[in-house]
């Protein structure tokens, strides 16, 4: 399929007075697409809307040209691994995945469940019930039930949570394999480094809005290019600030009431190299240099505000 598999047009979702998703539009083609954003950005709500689990307050969602909220047939083309950890406690992994296969009308649900569990490196013959499974094993069971009916669109909400590094590598390879099969795989994450391995296509959400979309390398470059704010504790804030500005190492300087210096730089490496020399020249003593706003939330905020 060459056109978009998922189309989201002007979608908003609010719960009472809380806006979870605000006027978001995008399309998703086949292959792996990462939906990136900090916790509370609206990623899970967006996935619920994509799967028809929730109704948009405004706008439209189409999966393969159909409304996932009202068209029962399109649910056969979607596989979802939700974020929540809860599972059917009385069931074994195979019984759970087999039940999913039966509800999707898979011709041989027993064999399909065994195959799906095998793909996520779990033993279909394991007779233990799901509550005895580790968090990582449950994640893989959820993934198995999402792919057991070989869906066209696979939606995975934070699927790597709880997995060890080897399992993560295996799962990421599996996502690529599924995407390479001509499926549309949508994966959410709040970890930037994780997304880098998912693929090149990224949607960035923060505070319910689409902050950026496109090739991961371009977005990463934007993120790396943003000004970095640092706090400098010194006994000569005014002199040091002026000298840093004069040397072109920083693009902005603010002296706080407590005498601390806030500086903005586009080249943190150069600042780190130059600041001891400039401080010596200005006879300023440096007590502390601490980056502010360097967490992922700050990165996303920059993307929204730029």
């Amino acid at each position: 399929m060459s056109g978009p598999v998922v189309e989201v047009q002007g979608v908003s979702k609010w719960f009472g007075g809380v806006v979870a998703v605000s006027d978001v539009s995008f399309t998703i083609p086949d292959g792996v697409t990462a939906l990136l954003g900090p916790n509370g950005a609206g990623k899970s709500t967006m996935l619920r809307l994509l799967c028809g689990l929730a109704r948009p307050s405004k706008g439209t969602v189409r999966v393969l040209g159909r409304d996932p909220r009202t068209d029962l047939d399109v649910t056969r083309l979607i596989g979802l691994a939700p974020q929540q950890e809860s599972v059917f406690e009385p069931l074994t992994a195979h019984a759970f995945v087999r039940a999913t296969a039966v509800l999707h009308g898979v011709p041989d649900p027993t064999a399909a469940a065994a195959a799906a569990l095998g793909r996520v490196e779990l033993d279909p013959a394991d007779t233990r019930r799901l509550p005895t499974y580790s968090k990582g094993m449950r994640q893989r069971v959820k993934l198995a039930q999402a792919i057991v009916h070989e869906p066209r669109v696979i939606v995975l909400d934070e699927p790597l949570t709880g997995l060890d590094p080897r399992q993560r590598s295996h799962m990421i390879a599996l996502f690529h394999s599924l995407g390479g099969d001509g499926r549309c795989v949508i994966v959410t994450s709040h970890v930037l480094e994780e997304v880098e391995r998912f693929g090149t296509r990224v949607l960035v959400m923060t505070k319910g809005r689409l902050a950026a979309s496109g090739d991961f390398r371009e977005i990463r470059a934007l993120m790396d290019d943003r000004p970095l704010r640092l706090r400098v504790r010194t006994d000569a804030a005014q002199a040091l600030g002026g000298a840093l500005l004069g040397a072109g190492v920083v693009v902005g300087v603010r002296i706080q009431a407590d005498g601390e210096l806030l500086v903005d730089t586009r080249d943190a490496r150069r600042l780190a190299h130059e600041i001891p020399r400039i401080a010596r020249a200005e006879r300023a003593r440096l007590f502390e240099i601490r980056p502010l706003d360097s967490d992922l939330e700050g990165v996303f905020r920059y993307l929204v505000e730029r």
Binding site: D30, D73, V102, G182
Partner: peptide
């Protein structure tokens, strides 16, 4: 696993089979 292009989605699952499965789960 077949590729997505191979995936055919025939008729919906048999109602009795799905009702029985839901009954067993509940």
């Amino acid at each position: 696993m077949t590729t997505a292009a191979d995936t055919t989605h025939g008729p919906r699952p048999a109602p009795l089979a799905t009702l029985r499965q839901l009954y067993v789960i509940v």
